[in-house]
Nucleic acid binder design. Sequence first.
DNA 1: CCAATGCTTCGAGGGCGATCGAAGTGTTGC
DNA 2: GCAACACTTCGATCGCCCTCGAAGCATTGG
Lengths: 231, 231
Amino acid sequence: MPNNARFAEIAALAGDPGRASMLTGLMDGRALTASELARLAGVTAQTASSHLMRMTEAGLLLVEKQGRHRYHRLASPAVAQMIESIMRLAAPAVDSKPVRTGPRDAALRAGRTCYDHLAGHLGVSIADSLIDAGHLELGIDAGEVTANGIHLFESAGINVEALTAKGSRILCRPCLDWSERRPHLAGAIGAALCTHCFDKGWIRRVEGSRAVTVTPNGRRQLRETFGVNLS
Amino acid sequence: MPNNARFAEIAALAGDPGRASMLTGLMDGRALTASELARLAGVTAQTASSHLMRMTEAGLLLVEKQGRHRYHRLASPAVAQMIESIMRLAAPAVDSKPVRTGPRDAALRAGRTCYDHLAGHLGVSIADSLIDAGHLELGIDAGEVTANGIHLFESAGINVEALTAKGSRILCRPCLDWSERRPHLAGAIGAALCTHCFDKGWIRRVEGSRAVTVTPNGRRQLRETFGVNLS
DNA sequence: CCAATGCTTCGAGGGCGATCGAAGTGTTGC
DNA sequence: GCAACACTTCGATCGCCCTCGAAGCATTGG
């Protein structure tokens, strides 16, 4: 089975300390430059360049040229999931907390990150509001930001032009929400919106979980800026 | 971060072709002897011994002495999940190529065990049916058994309370199916359901393979008990 | 006991790849 | 244009670890 060789190849790529640092450093979904990743891994630029090329060719990373910088990010949620599964094994026995199906699940339903965008009641509410206001069109299999929507995001401080210029990544796509059973906003614009909310302090991550909570100010800002009403 | 070293160590262990063969060979949850694993990996007994010791010390495998044999198996579902996540990245060729389907591949696609739960067309069909009937919610990143679902499993003779009481293991989680490209049911409840099907004689393991076949009675029982319609 | 089997330990060989210095290409800013 | 910056390519070094032969335990069966 030739498949096995590829299995080992991929695992081996994650099996070098330097590359491991790079991969875990990219887990938040951001795109980092080669220099940043080199510093993060504690190696010289040449070494980092070699690592990044190999991981890109193997399909673990995607790279975007932007001027004299090269931005690298994880190629897909599947890659992030693999890294997460390794991290879980690498973590010391934190398993002490039994992860009860109580407040935590409720928190996950209310709002969480799905790879690099927002999901749960929060994510679906945002998508619904944007759709209702004509800023967004979103179906099961595809989606699009309207001209109105682009204007809205731009005026909120999210540079949509820059996102589309990045080329390879799809600007807007739906992602089916497991708790709400309806699509929420993913793609480059979904990731940008998520980052925006974190940066502005509108949402905060719950320690040791994918769950996020909306701050009082965030709730107000989301309503005023994006017309989102969180019930 | 000392954690990073352990991340790389674990990934590197999976990154050797020989060890990769061993790990994937243990994915059905069975325990194999060192000799069997050596043959599977295509290496001598000495080499295999070294590999097995390292993987055991790293916590990937558990070993059980039994006379002059030493049985090795995956240490936990978390290990199996890591392997599965790597396998999924290793098989992107499913998109481009129509995938030559030998009889054995066809059997694997139809139904197989994924460590300790059911996968393939069988696994996805079960998950879909449970979701449609409101017994289960399952997305890319998380899932949950509904109150209705708990009642269904209990009445079928699966003690859900006992599973949740176990504490550490997650009751319900999705596992992305590599042949169907959609989530199927994993976690404690997925394992319990799989065991239930074997115990009742609804499914049988194909000799020397992870593939399973559904017996005529099993097909009927799955429909009557869990509302599963296998096309 | 002795031979056979399963597995491990020891030691040596050998290849792969991680690393960095040096040099080259492309881009930005003045 | 020139200098600074970001990144890549090339080449050489060197250490790690994969591998197997040989020998050493451990267990089983006769």
